[in-house]
Protein backbone atom coordinates (compact mmCIF):
# COMPACT_ATOMS: atom_id res chain seq x y z
CA UNK A 1 0.00 0.00 0.00
CA UNK A 2 2.93 2.30 0.73
CA UNK A 3 4.12 1.78 -2.85
CA UNK A 4 0.67 2.63 -4.16
CA UNK A 5 0.60 5.81 -2.06
CA UNK A 6 3.99 6.77 -3.48
CA UNK A 7 2.90 6.14 -7.07
CA UNK A 8 -0.27 8.18 -6.66
CA UNK A 9 1.59 11.10 -5.08
CA UNK A 10 1.81 14.18 -7.37
CA UNK A 11 5.48 14.47 -6.37
CA UNK A 12 6.28 10.91 -7.47
CA UNK A 13 9.61 11.00 -9.32
CA UNK A 14 8.42 8.70 -12.13
CA UNK A 15 4.99 10.31 -12.48
CA UNK A 16 5.53 11.02 -16.21
CA UNK A 17 6.34 7.35 -16.77
CA UNK A 18 3.17 6.15 -15.11
CA UNK A 19 1.04 8.78 -16.87
CA UNK A 20 2.52 7.75 -20.22
CA UNK A 21 2.10 4.07 -19.46
CA UNK A 22 -1.57 4.49 -18.53
CA UNK A 23 -2.33 6.75 -21.54
CA UNK A 24 -0.84 4.13 -23.86
CA UNK A 25 -2.64 1.37 -21.96
CA UNK A 26 -5.95 3.10 -22.62
CA UNK A 27 -5.19 4.03 -26.25
CA UNK A 28 -3.53 0.95 -27.79
CA UNK A 29 -6.58 -1.33 -27.37
CA UNK A 30 -8.73 1.22 -29.21
CA UNK A 31 -6.82 0.53 -32.43
CA UNK A 32 -6.21 -3.07 -31.30
CA UNK A 33 -9.96 -3.65 -31.64
CA UNK A 34 -9.58 -3.06 -35.40
CA UNK A 35 -6.61 -5.48 -35.55
CA UNK A 36 -8.77 -8.18 -33.95
CA UNK A 37 -11.86 -7.46 -36.08
CA UNK A 38 -9.88 -7.35 -39.32
CA UNK A 39 -8.00 -10.47 -38.23
CA UNK A 40 -4.64 -8.72 -38.49
CA UNK A 41 -3.08 -10.18 -35.35
CA UNK A 42 0.20 -10.95 -37.12
CA UNK A 43 0.34 -7.37 -38.34
CA UNK A 44 -0.04 -6.34 -34.70
CA UNK A 45 3.13 -8.31 -33.95
CA UNK A 46 5.12 -7.10 -36.95
CA UNK A 47 4.26 -3.39 -36.89
CA UNK A 48 5.71 -2.50 -33.46
CA UNK A 49 8.90 -4.34 -34.42
CA UNK A 50 9.11 -2.51 -37.75
CA UNK A 51 8.45 0.73 -35.89
CA UNK A 52 11.40 0.03 -33.57
CA UNK A 53 13.60 -0.58 -36.63
CA UNK A 54 12.55 2.88 -37.82
CA UNK A 55 13.73 4.26 -34.46
CA UNK A 56 17.04 2.42 -34.77
CA UNK A 57 17.63 3.70 -38.31
CA UNK A 58 16.64 7.26 -37.38
CA UNK A 59 19.05 7.20 -34.43
CA UNK A 60 21.84 5.70 -36.55
CA UNK A 61 21.40 8.23 -39.35
CA UNK A 62 23.26 11.11 -37.59
CA UNK A 63 26.18 8.78 -36.87
CA UNK A 64 26.35 7.71 -40.53
CA UNK A 65 26.25 11.37 -41.57
CA UNK A 66 28.95 12.33 -39.07
CA UNK A 67 26.79 14.33 -36.61
CA UNK A 68 27.20 14.06 -32.87
CA UNK A 69 23.69 13.33 -31.58
CA UNK A 70 24.79 13.47 -27.93
CA UNK A 71 25.38 17.21 -28.19
CA UNK A 72 21.71 17.79 -29.02
CA UNK A 73 18.94 17.79 -26.43
CA UNK A 74 16.77 14.79 -25.57
CA UNK A 75 13.82 16.47 -27.30
CA UNK A 76 15.70 16.39 -30.63
CA UNK A 77 16.52 12.73 -30.10
CA UNK A 78 12.92 11.93 -29.29
CA UNK A 79 11.62 13.86 -32.31
CA UNK A 80 14.09 12.07 -34.58
CA UNK A 81 13.07 8.71 -33.13
CA UNK A 82 9.39 9.60 -33.62
CA UNK A 83 9.98 10.54 -37.27
CA UNK A 84 11.82 7.25 -37.88
CA UNK A 85 9.14 5.27 -36.12
CA UNK A 86 6.14 6.82 -37.87
CA UNK A 87 7.82 6.72 -41.31
CA UNK A 88 8.59 3.01 -41.05
CA UNK A 89 5.27 2.09 -39.47
CA UNK A 90 3.19 3.89 -42.08
CA UNK A 91 5.27 2.66 -45.00
CA UNK A 92 5.07 -0.92 -43.72
CA UNK A 93 1.35 -0.86 -43.03
CA UNK A 94 0.54 0.65 -46.43
CA UNK A 95 2.79 -1.78 -48.32
CA UNK A 96 1.52 -4.82 -46.39
CA UNK A 97 -2.11 -3.73 -46.81
CA UNK A 98 -1.58 -3.14 -50.54
CA UNK A 99 -0.03 -6.59 -50.99
CA UNK A 100 -2.86 -8.17 -49.00
CA UNK A 101 -5.48 -6.42 -51.16
CA UNK A 102 -3.81 -7.79 -54.29
CA UNK A 103 -4.31 -11.24 -52.82
CA UNK A 104 -1.07 -12.79 -54.08
CA UNK A 105 1.43 -14.79 -52.01
CA UNK A 106 1.20 -15.67 -48.33
CA UNK A 107 0.25 -12.76 -46.02
CA UNK A 108 1.37 -14.64 -42.89
CA UNK A 109 4.71 -15.44 -44.51
CA UNK A 110 5.24 -11.80 -45.48
CA UNK A 111 4.41 -10.58 -41.98
CA UNK A 112 6.62 -13.22 -40.36
CA UNK A 113 9.52 -12.31 -42.62
CA UNK A 114 8.99 -8.59 -41.98
CA UNK A 115 8.98 -9.28 -38.23
CA UNK A 116 12.21 -11.27 -38.05
CA UNK A 117 13.98 -8.94 -40.49
CA UNK A 118 12.93 -5.88 -38.50
CA UNK A 119 13.94 -7.41 -35.17
CA UNK A 120 17.35 -8.50 -36.47
CA UNK A 121 18.01 -5.19 -38.19
CA UNK A 122 17.20 -3.24 -35.01
CA UNK A 123 19.68 -5.29 -32.98
CA UNK A 124 22.40 -5.00 -35.66
CA UNK A 125 21.98 -1.24 -36.00
CA UNK A 126 21.97 -0.54 -32.30
CA UNK A 127 24.93 -2.83 -31.64
CA UNK A 128 26.99 -0.67 -34.00
CA UNK A 129 25.68 2.60 -32.59
CA UNK A 130 27.63 3.95 -29.59
CA UNK A 131 24.56 5.86 -28.40
CA UNK A 132 22.54 2.65 -28.36
CA UNK A 133 24.14 1.68 -25.06
CA UNK A 134 23.16 4.86 -23.27
CA UNK A 135 19.45 4.32 -23.08
CA UNK A 136 17.97 3.73 -26.50
CA UNK A 137 18.27 -0.03 -26.21
CA UNK A 138 16.44 0.20 -22.88
CA UNK A 139 13.74 2.27 -24.55
CA UNK A 140 13.25 -0.39 -27.21
CA UNK A 141 13.09 -3.07 -24.51
CA UNK A 142 10.28 -1.25 -22.77
CA UNK A 143 11.95 0.32 -19.75
CA UNK A 144 9.82 3.37 -19.08
CA UNK A 145 12.09 5.24 -16.73
CA UNK A 146 12.95 8.70 -18.01
CA UNK A 147 9.92 10.26 -19.70
CA UNK A 148 10.35 14.01 -20.08
CA UNK A 149 7.48 16.49 -19.97
CA UNK A 150 7.95 16.94 -23.75
CA UNK A 151 7.58 13.18 -24.31
CA UNK A 152 4.47 13.06 -22.13
CA UNK A 153 2.83 16.01 -23.89
CA UNK A 154 3.68 14.60 -27.33
CA UNK A 155 2.25 11.19 -26.40
CA UNK A 156 -0.90 12.67 -24.85
CA UNK A 157 -1.51 15.06 -27.77
CA UNK A 158 -0.99 12.37 -30.43
CA UNK A 159 -3.19 9.84 -28.71
CA UNK A 160 -5.91 12.43 -28.05
CA UNK A 161 -5.92 13.11 -31.78
CA UNK A 162 -6.20 9.38 -32.49
CA UNK A 163 -9.02 9.00 -29.96
CA UNK A 164 -10.93 11.97 -31.44
CA UNK A 165 -10.59 10.63 -34.99
CA UNK A 166 -11.67 7.11 -33.95
CA UNK A 167 -14.72 8.51 -32.18
CA UNK A 168 -15.65 10.95 -34.94
CA UNK A 169 -15.29 8.52 -37.84
CA UNK A 170 -16.23 5.30 -36.06
CA UNK A 171 -19.15 4.48 -38.36
CA UNK A 172 -17.08 4.91 -41.53
CA UNK A 173 -14.14 2.88 -40.15
CA UNK A 174 -16.52 0.16 -38.96
CA UNK A 175 -18.36 0.05 -42.30
CA UNK A 176 -15.21 -0.36 -44.44
CA UNK A 177 -13.98 -3.05 -42.04
CA UNK A 178 -17.27 -4.98 -41.79
CA UNK A 179 -18.55 -4.73 -45.36
CA UNK A 180 -16.23 -3.15 -47.88
CA UNK A 181 -18.57 -3.84 -50.81
CA UNK A 182 -21.45 -2.00 -49.17
CA UNK A 183 -19.15 0.95 -48.45
CA UNK A 184 -18.23 1.16 -52.16
CA UNK A 185 -21.87 0.86 -53.23
CA UNK A 186 -22.83 3.66 -50.81
CA UNK A 187 -20.23 5.87 -52.50
CA UNK A 188 -17.69 5.86 -49.65
CA UNK A 189 -14.05 6.37 -50.57
CA UNK A 190 -12.80 3.11 -49.07
CA UNK A 191 -9.14 3.83 -49.88
CA UNK A 192 -9.32 7.12 -47.97
CA UNK A 193 -10.91 5.45 -44.90
CA UNK A 194 -8.41 2.59 -45.00
CA UNK A 195 -5.52 5.05 -45.14
CA UNK A 196 -7.00 7.07 -42.27
CA UNK A 197 -7.31 3.90 -40.16
CA UNK A 198 -3.73 2.92 -41.01
CA UNK A 199 -2.55 6.42 -40.14
CA UNK A 200 -4.25 6.20 -36.74
CA UNK A 201 -2.78 2.72 -36.18
CA UNK A 202 0.64 4.01 -37.28
CA UNK A 203 0.53 6.99 -34.90
CA UNK A 204 -0.55 4.83 -31.96
CA UNK A 205 2.02 2.12 -32.64
CA UNK A 206 4.80 4.70 -33.05
CA UNK A 207 3.99 6.47 -29.80
CA UNK A 208 3.64 3.17 -27.97
CA UNK A 209 6.93 1.79 -29.30
CA UNK A 210 8.80 4.97 -28.36
CA UNK A 211 7.43 4.90 -24.83
CA UNK A 212 7.05 1.24 -23.90
CA UNK A 213 8.92 -0.70 -26.61
CA UNK A 214 7.68 -3.09 -29.33
CA UNK A 215 6.99 -6.11 -27.11
CA UNK A 216 4.80 -4.21 -24.69
CA UNK A 217 3.13 -2.27 -27.51
CA UNK A 218 2.12 -5.57 -29.11
CA UNK A 219 0.78 -6.77 -25.77
CA UNK A 220 -1.39 -3.68 -25.31
CA UNK A 221 -2.56 -3.67 -28.92
CA UNK A 222 -3.96 -7.18 -28.87
CA UNK A 223 -4.43 -8.81 -25.48
CA UNK A 224 -6.95 -6.31 -24.00
CA UNK A 225 -9.02 -6.50 -27.22
CA UNK A 226 -8.93 -10.32 -27.18
CA UNK A 227 -9.97 -10.33 -23.50
CA UNK A 228 -12.78 -7.84 -24.06
CA UNK A 229 -14.12 -9.88 -26.98
CA UNK A 230 -14.75 -12.79 -24.59
CA UNK A 231 -17.30 -10.80 -22.55
CA UNK A 232 -18.60 -7.92 -24.68
CA UNK A 233 -22.05 -8.08 -26.25
CA UNK A 234 -21.75 -5.14 -28.63
CA UNK A 235 -19.14 -2.96 -30.28
CA UNK A 236 -19.37 -0.21 -27.66
CA UNK A 237 -18.78 -2.66 -24.80
CA UNK A 238 -15.98 -4.26 -26.81
CA UNK A 239 -14.14 -0.96 -27.32
CA UNK A 240 -14.71 0.44 -23.81
CA UNK A 241 -13.87 -2.83 -22.05
CA UNK A 242 -10.66 -3.28 -24.10
CA UNK A 243 -9.55 0.29 -23.39
CA UNK A 244 -10.34 0.06 -19.66
CA UNK A 245 -8.51 -3.27 -19.39
CA UNK A 246 -5.44 -1.76 -21.06
CA UNK A 247 -5.46 1.31 -18.82
CA UNK A 248 -5.98 -0.63 -15.59
CA UNK A 249 -3.32 -3.24 -16.45
CA UNK A 250 -0.85 -0.48 -17.36
CA UNK A 251 -1.31 0.97 -13.87
CA UNK A 252 -1.24 -2.43 -12.16
CA UNK A 253 1.87 -3.46 -14.11
CA UNK A 254 3.67 -0.27 -13.17
CA UNK A 255 2.74 -0.74 -9.53
CA UNK A 256 4.05 -4.33 -9.48
CA UNK A 257 7.20 -3.39 -11.39
CA UNK A 258 7.91 -0.55 -8.95
CA UNK A 259 7.16 -2.74 -5.93
CA UNK A 260 9.39 -5.64 -7.02
CA UNK A 261 11.92 -3.71 -9.10
CA UNK A 262 11.01 -5.34 -12.43
CA UNK A 263 11.19 -3.70 -15.87
CA UNK A 264 7.76 -2.15 -16.49
CA UNK A 265 7.07 -3.33 -20.08
CA UNK A 266 7.58 -7.08 -19.57
CA UNK A 267 5.68 -6.89 -16.25
CA UNK A 268 2.71 -5.34 -18.09
CA UNK A 269 2.75 -8.11 -20.70
CA UNK A 270 2.93 -10.89 -18.10
CA UNK A 271 0.03 -9.35 -16.17
CA UNK A 272 -1.95 -9.09 -19.41
CA UNK A 273 -1.16 -12.72 -20.28
CA UNK A 274 -2.17 -14.04 -16.84
CA UNK A 275 -5.40 -12.03 -16.89
CA UNK A 276 -6.18 -13.25 -20.41
CA UNK A 277 -5.79 -16.88 -19.27
CA UNK A 278 -8.08 -16.25 -16.27
CA UNK A 279 -10.58 -14.41 -18.47
CA UNK A 280 -10.63 -17.24 -21.01
CA UNK A 281 -11.31 -19.85 -18.30
CA UNK A 282 -13.99 -17.61 -16.75
CA UNK A 283 -15.65 -17.07 -20.14
CA UNK A 284 -15.71 -20.83 -20.83
CA UNK A 285 -17.15 -21.49 -17.38
CA UNK A 286 -19.78 -18.78 -17.86
CA UNK A 287 -20.70 -20.20 -21.25
CA UNK A 288 -21.06 -23.76 -19.88
CA UNK A 289 -23.00 -22.47 -16.86
CA UNK A 290 -25.41 -20.49 -19.08
CA UNK A 291 -25.89 -23.47 -21.40
CA UNK A 292 -26.66 -25.86 -18.52
CA UNK A 293 -29.04 -23.31 -16.92
CA UNK A 294 -30.88 -22.91 -20.21
CA UNK A 295 -31.14 -26.69 -20.73
CA UNK A 296 -32.73 -27.07 -17.26
CA UNK A 297 -35.51 -24.75 -18.33
CA UNK A 298 -36.24 -26.65 -21.52
Amino acid sequence: METLRQILSPDFLLRNSIYTSVIIGFSCPLVGVFFVMRRLVFMGVALPQISSTGVAIALSLPMWLGFNLASHGSNSVHTLAFIGSITFTLTAILVLAFLERRGHGHPDGRLGTAYVMAASLSILLLSKNPYGEIGWLDMLKGDIIAISNFDLVLTAATLTLVLAALGLFHKELLLVSFDRELAIILGKNVVFWDILLYLLIGLTVSMAVLSIGPLTAFGFLLIPALMAHLFAHNMRQFTVLASLTGGVVAFLGFWLAYQYDFPVGPTDVVVLGVLYAIAWIAARWLSDFTASSNSKWL
Binding site: R39, S177, N234
Partner: peptide, 8 residues
Protein backbone atom coordinates in the same frame (compact mmCIF):
# COMPACT_ATOMS: atom_id res chain seq x y z
CA UNK B 1 -20.08 -13.20 -46.45
CA UNK B 2 -19.82 -11.72 -42.92
CA UNK B 3 -17.29 -12.40 -40.19
CA UNK B 4 -18.94 -13.39 -36.90
CA UNK B 5 -16.18 -11.66 -34.91
CA UNK B 6 -18.04 -8.34 -35.24
CA UNK B 7 -20.27 -7.78 -32.22
CA UNK B 8 -23.05 -6.07 -34.14
Amino acid sequence: HFDSIYLL
